[in-house]
Design a protein around this nucleic acid. Structure first.
Length: 271
DNA sequence: CACGATACCTGTAAGC
DNA sequence: TGCTTACAGGTATCGT
């Protein structure tokens, strides 16, 4: 669920209710996700007013009028439920606004995280300082990739998952972008040619933009407590399509394992 | 430092 | 039906 487009869609969905709202009640139902919730989280958020929302890489940002930003990461299985009918065992953090809307941060695998960071120095927060450029930003260019990947022997697939190279891609969109760009995911990153990088950058930007747009048209899904995302999944060319015909050449899609994770690709279309 | 392997945690689906 | 295994959208950390 949560790669950059899903986080962006989540943030937009939350903003409709949270932007300008007062956080009337904040409740923790357990003390930790991947890490403990920050000291004083409930106290610092309760009564605060939300001054805006945003996103950096796969992190969602909720800014408050107390000079702090709640930074959330959804890990593998996290999502925000809007107006949940009931609070389940994986609803770890619950927020109620002054106007009576309720939200819960639900994360069964608990690979997610929540931090409370001073807004003024958010970019200096070590976690953010280490991130590469936003893939949808102007900084993310073939020239950037060339610089970042020169001399690297690791597979291009794995380098694109490295958030220090470019921040926000995950397994799905890396597979999809490499297919669109016609690049073999096993290729050493430093060996990817300049023309191929010239195809890769727009392929990444396009697949992300399409996924955000598809999510954006289905924001009301966030009002359904058990609603799954997956609007964009109908459009996957390779992800989770092992053995099925390539959308371009009809050859069977291959599944391999890289870095312990699945990669899907077309052996004929990706060289 | 670069790189690969492993750990973290829970749920689900497939296989026997 | 029950048990076991493989796998899942991510990231931090530990060897080599």
């Amino acid at each position: 669920m949560p790669e950059l487009p899903e986080v962006e869609t989540t943030v937009r969905g939350l903003a409709r209710y949270l932007d300008g709202a007062r956080l009337a009640r904040v409740t923790l139902h357990r003390g930790d996700l991947r890490r403990p919730f920050p000291e004083g989280l409930v106290q610092n958020l309760t009564g605060a007013e939300v001054t805006g929302l945003g996103r950096r890489a796969k992190y969602g940002l909720i800014h408050t009028n107390r000079g702090q930003t709640m930074v959330f990461h959804l890990g593998m299985s996290g999502r925000w439920r809007i107006e949940p009918n009931e609070i389940g065992k994986h609803d770890h953090l619950v927020i109620e606004t002054g106007s009576g809307h309720q939200f819960s941060l639900c994360d069964p695998r608990r690979f997610g995280s929540v931090d409370l960071i001073d807004t003024a120095t958010l970019d200096l927060w070590p976690t953010f300082a280490a991130l590469g450029p936003e893939p949808l930003g102007a900084d993310f260019s073939p020239a950037h990739l060339k610089t970042a990947l020169t001399g690297r022997s690791a597979a291009i697939k794995l380098m694109l998952l490295d958030q220090r190279i470019v921040a926000g891609l995950g397994n799905i969109y890396v597979c999809e972008a490499l297919f669109r760009a016609g690049i073999d995911p096993r290729k050493a990153a430093g060996q990817v040619t300049r023309p191929a990088l010239g195809r890769l950058v727009p392929a990444i930007k396009e697949v992300l933009a399409e996924a955000i747009e598809a999510g954006g048209s289905s924001l009301r899904d966030y009002a359904q407590p058990d609603g799954q995302l997956g609007y964009f999944s109908k459009r996957f060319d390779v992800y989770d399509r092992a053995g099925q015909p390539c959308t371009r050449c009809a050859a069977p899609i291959q599944r391999i394992v890289q870095g312990g994770r699945s990669t899907w690709s077309c052996a004929k279309c990706q060289k």
